[in-house]
Design a protein around this nucleic acid. Sequence first.
RNA 1: GGGGAGAUACCCAAGCGGUCAAAGGGGGCAGGCUGUAAACCUGUUGGCGUAGCCUUCGGGGGUUCGAAUCCUCCUCUCCCCA
Length: 416
Amino acid sequence: MRGPMSVELALEELLDSRVADVFTKDELREKLARSERERRPLRVKLGVDPTAPDIHLGHAVVLRKMRAFQDLGHTGVLIIGDYTAMVGDPSGKNKTRPQLSYDEIEQNAATYKEQVFKILDPERTEIVLNGEWFRKLAFADVLRLASRFTVARLLERDDFEKRLAKQQPISLHEVMYPVMQAYDSVMVRADVELGATEQTFNILMGRQLQEQMGQERQIGLLVPILTGICGTVRMSKSIGNYIGIAESPQEMFGKTMSIPDRLLAEYLRLATDYRPDEVERLERALADGSANPRDVKFQMAKRIVAMYHGEESSELAASDFERVFKRKEAPREMPVIGLSSKDLKEGKIWIAKLLRLANAASSNSNALGLVRQGAVSIDGAPVDAGRPDVAVKSGMTLKVGKRRFFRIEITNDTSD
RNA sequence: GGGGAGAUACCCAAGCGGUCAAAGGGGGCAGGCUGUAAACCUGUUGGCGUAGCCUUCGGGGGUUCGAAUCCUCCUCUCCCCA
């Protein structure tokens, strides 16, 4: 149990640390105080779309904020937008999203639930699918709901404004998205809605609708958007510039080390659990040159991996990293490519086939391209594009590019 | 309802009868240099056991020895007018 002082501190962090905006802070303080008085936990809502199920460090920022509320005794209400996923949130998009099939959505939702408790407290989490209420609405209900919003107001969203300016299409169903999200807030009686800054508009709509429908309006708490590891645009699964919280320690470590230096401060602040004063100290050291960015990044990578895999795995990932990139050796453990003796002709295999079995190339053409560029080696010897049939034995190491390693295992298959 | 513009690969965009698997840029991947950073240089970026062949330029049909390019119908998008 926390003492009174640490509650004070936790509150301060809740409102300020990794927060971009709160509307409004005063209202939130009041709600928190009242919740304390009445011993009624706040209902803290977060809506997620089960479109790309893997949770990454970008999602983690907001999920960890929810966790912070839970640690103070409040209830996290996680809405899986199975129904809204059929629409696709236009936020930050410059084009219409593809609508998913129901099967895909269900599968994604399952993966999501699986990963989310790496961060959230299961004891204080409610998970609901918004199809629960949307499925039941009749068209007349939808019209009544829609009548509470004006087109002018909905088109004020900057993504819509931009698209209009660029003469790009906006579908009617996309305009409904904020309406649906607002309705979610009403249905779960949210006290607080969390989201990244791009959610500002949607969350404000929820506030408005709740008031119109006789509820106290929710507080919006916005967290900053994390830039992806490419360093240019937001972290996103579909772009592929992400670090997933369910990825292997080695992957996480490596990806963290590959971010551009200029993202260091941002990642220290948003992606780690360093205390604000620690972040500040590191930022200062980077700015005045007393710390080497590479070393800070190394520390940070260890921290991030530890957050999701524990200290031990983190240390191992760090030492594997040193081993591979400093000493140019193979990692201790690597994925195995299982070959059967049937795959071989006189002990040899076509390199393209080998790469495809390893899932290291998307096609034979792609594989042979890699070989031509000298990216492929076996036991340290580059594969010659002119001699694409390579002799392999169990225990040999296949290396593709700078960082992908595989161990070859051959089983004697004489079944036919 | 009327008039106009448009749809080309992951994205932007050129091409407007053969020399087009399709310029250029971006992005991705790979190589060099590094710290799996940045910047820079180079290569590569539809598929196929690959000096050859197959499929691709919104979709169908046609003209032609030959079509991303011409004709025709369809689908979709944007703009202006009502």
